[in-house]
Structures are given as structure tokens and as C-alpha cells.
Computed example of a mutant assay.
Amino acid sequence: MRVTEGWRGRWERHERVRDALPGVLLVMVGVAATAADGSGWHAPRIAGAGWMAVSCLPLIVRSRWPLAVVLVTLGIDLAHLARAPDYPLVPAASLVALYTLATRDDRRTAWLTGLAAACAVNAAYALAHAESPVSGQALLRLDMVVAAVALGDTVRARRRRLAETEARAERAERTREEEARRRVTEERVRIARELHDVVAHHITLVNAQAGVARHLLHGDPDRAYRALAHIEETSRSALDELRATVGLLRQPDDLPDSRSPLPGLADLAELAGSFQAGGLSVDLVRTGPGGPPPDPAVGLAAYRIVQEALTNTHKHAAATRARVTVDQGPRRLCVTVTDDGRPGTSPGEGTGHGLIGMRERAAAIGGTVTAGPDPEGGFRVHAELPVRLS
């Protein structure tokens, strides 16, 4: 393959040499043909060899001006036929020029020029030899010209198909690379979102519980001890979730037994209880006609959205009470988190990754998330998610 590519590169760099090579071979064959006849070998006929050399000379630029070379070579061959009608003309230079025209120009031009040249050669031979245009020798010349055009047209079509195949292969390769990069980016965003939700939630609770313990350490040691116990439990839970999340990166596949059970709607009560220990009272209300259990991915998204909303409330809104409403219907699952934070405070005053992560989670499964100040005070996060993934 490398040898072939090397020779191809050399030919492309030396276009004039490549164009002249057929002419050199034709001159050599023409000289040999003039040195042989029915009686045996003799000295080459200078006139015949000279006409052959003159007709092949324009082939040096056949790739640059193919149509002009066809006209020039054809004129020289026809002039040679008129000068020496007894010479068995084979318009070799014209055949090479027509082949080149068919490989490089459009198909219509090549065939119109080829058919006109075939008729001209056929008629010239018939007139020079006083034969019928449908005689065997006259038709042989016509067929040779048509065959040269047909061969060039076939080569041009094959080159075009090869170029299209290579272009499709390159596009497919680029598409595969872009798809791989897109999937890597999506996976990185997903992992970053998971880590952000886990770390932000648990660290916020640890911080709040540590503040409570410090405040009660001297006045109420028993409550301070319970706060420290909550810190221990929360930090252990954070480490377990981090270990489970990071462990997914080490798994060669996504087998069900290779990961811990994913949290869902059934774990919202436990989540609310963890915030209760940190000083935020959370009311969990379930409404709606109900329906089939949502897909695990939907349950996980709802859980993480509630977790992030409560974490932001605890960190930024200076709220004492929050309300989580889960309204499940047969097709839609609506989750709303509101708080009683001070007017003007917003859970979005941090880095903004929390709200972005909530919206990304919802969008990934075909849902939406809206967040903003609640008309009744505080802040409101509302998510609408499909119950079943299509």
C-alpha cells in the first residue's frame, strides 16, 4: 500500500512526464511498425515516424487542455491520412486524447466529441481508400474511437465512485469521533452532576449539624452529642454514596449487580428526615390519582431534584420550613419544592450548578424544571417529568 501511494504521489508531482509517457510509447511502436511489412524488416520510414511523433507531441498537455488536444491530434491524424492514403491509419494519438477527455471532462462533452471524431475518422478513411463507410476497415476505425471514449468514461465513473466511497468513509469516521466525544462529554457532565448532588447535600447537612453541636456543646451536652451522632451518620452516608458513584467509573459495564440501588421516590421520606436533623423542617405531601411506578431513571431524577432544591434552601434561603409536593398521574409526575425563606433570598445565589443540574436531569428524560420566587414568599422549584420513558 505504501509503495503504491509513493508511486502515485510521484506521478501526481510530475504531470508532464505522466502525460508524455503514452506518446513516447506510441512513437516507439510507430517506428517499429514502419520498419516491418509483408516482405520483412527494413529501415523505418522517416515520414511515417515523423507524423506519428508530431501527432503525439500535443499529448504532453493532455491533462491540462484535453479538448484542445483532441482537436489538434485528430487534425494531424486526418492530415496524415489525406497525405498518405495508402498508409493503414490507426489514429493512436487521437485515441489517447479522447480517453483523457472522457476521464477528465463531463460525460456529455466527451461523448459528443467522441462520436464526432468517430464519424470523421470513418468518413476520412472511407474517402481516402474509396471504400464504403460501412466496410470492415472503416467500421474498425469508428469502433476504436468509440471504445476509447467508453473506456475513459468507465474509468471516470470508477474514480468518482471511489472518491464518493472515500468521502463517505471520512464522514462516517468523523461522525463516529464526534459521537464518541459527545458521549464522553455527556458522561462527564452526568458524573459531575451526581458528585455535585451528593457532596452538596451531605456537606450542607454536616455543616449545619456541626453548627448546632457547637452552639449546644456547653449548654445542652446531650443534644450536642446527638448532633455529633448525626454528623457521623451523615458523613458515613456521604462516603458510601461517593464510593458508589466513583465505583461506577471502575466498572467495565453497567450490570445491575455492579452498583448500589439507586434512590427514588420511596426514599424521599428518609431524605426529608435527614434535613430535619439539620434544622430544616420538611413536609412531604403526596397527591394525585397515582399510577404505575415511574421508571427508575425518572425516580432518580425526581429524588435528585428534591435533594438539590432542599440543599439550596438550607444553604441560601435562610428558611426554617420547606414543603415537598409529589403529584403523580398516569403519565406525568410533578414535583414541587417550596420554602419560607426571607423575601429577596434565592437558592440560586450560589454557583448556579445546582439549578443547572436540575434542569439537565429533567431535560435528559424529557421533562422540565422551573425555579423562581414564590408569589406567596420564599422560593419555588417545580419539575414536570414523564412517568414512563419512551
Rank of each mutant, 00 (worst) to 15 (best):
D105F: 02
R342A: 11
E166Y: 07
C56V: 07
G367R: 00
S135D: 01
A124C: 00
H230Y: 11
V145I: 00
R168T: 13
D86T: 11
A35P: 00
T325L: 11
V184A: 15
R13D: 13
H215N: 09
A82T: 05
N122L: 01
E233P: 14
A318L: 06
P256Y: 05
A227Y: 12
W65A: 14
R304E: 08
R8S: 15
S258G: 13
A169E: 07
L74I: 10
Q307A: 13
M1W: 07
A362F: 01
A33R: 10
D339M: 07
L385R: 05
D19H: 09
L242W: 03
L248D: 12
D240F: 11
A363Y: 09
V212T: 15
T368W: 02
T287P: 05
A244Q: 10
V70K: 03
P66M: 01
L333W: 00
G367A: 06
R323F: 01
I76L: 05
T100G: 09
W65R: 12
I231P: 06
E233D: 15
P261R: 08
L78S: 05
R8L: 11
S390W: 01
R332H: 10
E270S: 13
Q328P: 06
L239Q: 15
G290I: 08
R83M: 14
L239D: 13
G378L: 03
A224I: 03
V381K: 02
Q137S: 14
P386M: 01
A110K: 03
Q328N: 04
A126Y: 00
M52G: 05
A238G: 10
A84I: 06
S39R: 11
E12N: 07
R160A: 12
I365D: 02
E177Y: 04
R214W: 14
H129V: 15
L98G: 01
L25W: 04
G350M: 10
V90M: 14
D222I: 11
D77Q: 11
I203S: 15
P256C: 12
V306C: 04
A302K: 01
E308Y: 10
A244H: 07
A322W: 02
G348V: 14
D340P: 01
A172T: 12
A210V: 15
H215R: 14
R214I: 14
L248F: 08
L140E: 15
L284I: 08
S132A: 13
H196W: 15
P58L: 04
L142E: 05
G329I: 03
G290V: 03
G290R: 05
E308C: 15
R181D: 14
P256R: 02
R62D: 08
M52S: 07
A68H: 02
E12M: 08
S39A: 14
A47Y: 07
G211M: 11
A157L: 06
L95I: 00
N122S: 09
E241T: 10
S390Y: 03
G273A: 12
V381W: 00
W41N: 02
T204M: 06
T320A: 09
S55A: 04
R193P: 01
G247V: 13
L139S: 04
S274H: 03
E270D: 13
L95K: 00
T175Y: 10
Q209H: 09
I46C: 01
A84R: 09
W51C: 07
V31G: 02
R331C: 00
W111P: 10
N207E: 09
R83S: 12
A92D: 04
Q307V: 12
A229P: 07
L262I: 08
G264R: 10
A269T: 12
Q328M: 04
E177A: 11
V31F: 11
A123D: 05
